[in-house]
């Protein structure tokens, strides 16, 4: 796992193996308690629905508990949990595609300055991006992971992360008006 340049906001959880179910459950519970809020919020930014976000986060933890022993000592649990979550989000997105329109239609360029009520919220604007671009923005900016860590989480190269980041930010700027960024 590449080290983060900008440390993630949650404490860096590194798995240290201990013996026994009680110790394991305790260790796991402590991990969930430290991570749940951040993870659920990222899930929300990905799917715009607090219930679904809760559900995806729960699934992430369930999967992680089921494989807790298989996670190697030294595994970066923060990054690993994001990877599990994002994979669930991607799967969810794939299932929904074609069966249902999940995202509200977004105007290409709201007249933000003249009409504040028409201004999109950040979450709405995020929904206008591809799920891959959205994942990059959430991991990079809501969670403050380094480009390298985001690349590891998503299983792509750093240059792909940078490219998506630039593209997504410029798209957000278009959707949200110029006062959004760069200050």
């Amino acid at each position: 796992m590449t080290d983060t340049v900008v440390p993630p906001r949650s404490t860096g959880w590194t798995l240290t193996r201990r013996r026994g179910k009680a110790a394991r459950d305790q260790e796991f519970t402590a991990f969930v308690e430290s991570t749940a809020t951040r993870l659920r919020r990222s899930a929300y930014l990905m799917c715009r629905d607090w219930h679904l976000a809760q559900d995806l986060t729960q699934q992430t933890f369930t999967k992680m508990y089921a494989s807790w022993e298989r996670l190697k000592s030294g595994t970066n649990l923060d990054a690993y949990s994001r990877r599990v979550l994002m994979n669930l989000v991607f799967d969810q997105q794939k299932r929904l595609k074609g069966s249902e329109i999940v995202l509200a239609e977004l105007p290409d360029r709201p007249d933000a300055a003249a009409n504040p009520e028409l201004r999109l919220t950040l979450v709405e604007a995020l929904a206008g991006l591809s799920v891959e671009d959205r994942a990059v923005l959430v991991l990079r900016h809501a969670e403050d992971h380094s480009v390298e860590t985001v690349a590891t989480i998503l299983g792509v190269s750093s240059s792909v992360v940078k490219m998506r980041n630039t593209r997504a930010l410029s798209r957000l700027r278009t959707l949200l008006g110029d006062d959004f960024l760069d200050r």
Partner: peptide
């Protein structure tokens, strides 16, 4: 954020993950 109880989430994960 409406909030959620992390200990409840851990508990559910331990039960369901344990079954897996």
């Amino acid at each position: 954020d409406p909030g959620a109880d992390p200990s409840a989430m851990a508990h559910t994960a331990i039960l369901e993950g344990g079954r897996v």
